[in-house]
Write a protein that binds this DNA or RNA. Structure first.
Length: 179
DNA sequence: TTCACGATTCTA
DNA sequence: AGAATCGTGAAG
């Protein structure tokens, strides 16, 4: 669960899709090189590594692991209550919905900063978590470092065997309705 | 200085 | 399937 509080508005949702990246593996920005752009990835955990992608969108990562080790988790999709299931479905859309840009690169997740991650309801069975390969990478394709909630409607890319139907062309707000 | 490309999304 | 769009890093 992620929460953002600004000007008395609380925006929150359930993180339903993530990917992991590590300096040990070629898809990672921190693979074999430490540059001004990826510097934050090597910083202390709990900060955000945010970069511009395709000149248009932003990707938001939570830096993990110890300082000086490039390691992060890409936030790919968030399900927001009382909102269209697709408003934060995908890295670019997610960043847009939460108003996060590279201005927020290196922001520390905390109550003080108005952005933090909190514990949500526990996942009942592991069957509800699907582990598979990452999206949109040209290297490290074999690594299955993508995880998502199988029964969520807010996943960016689905697979056969998911527990809910594909999106219909017309958007259907239905956060609390079952699959 | 030039060039290729990318952890994406929307449109045809 | 293809375009849009621009910061970054490597090459010349």
């Amino acid at each position: 669960m992620i929460k953002r509080e600004s000007s008395k508005q609380l925006l929150w949702g359930v993180i339903v899709e993530t990917e992991a990246y590590s300096q040990s593996e070629p898809a990672c920005h921190g693979y074999k090189k430490r540059t001004p752009k990826n510097e934050v990835l090597f910083g202390p955990p709990g900060h955000l590594y945010i970069y511009l992608i395709y000149g248009t969108y932003h990707c938001v990562n939570v830096v993990t692991n110890k300082t000086n080790f490039g390691n992060g988790v890409l936030l790919r999709s968030i399900a927001l209550p009382d909102e269209n299931e697709r408003t934060a479905s995908g890295p670019g859309l997610l960043a847009k919905r939460f108003g996060l840009t590279r201005e927020h690169n290196n922001l520390k997740l905390s109550l003080e900063q108005g952005l933090w991650i909190a514990k949500g309801s526990s996942i009942k069975t592991m069957d509800n978590i699907h582990q598979t390969t990452r999206i949109g990478v040209s290297k490290g394709k074999d690594l299955r470092w993508r995880w998502y909630l199988r029964n969520s409607r807010s996943i960016s890319k689905r697979e056969k065997g998911d527990l809910c139907p594909s999106y219909s062309k017309a958007w259907q707000p239905s956060f609390n309705q079952g699959p």
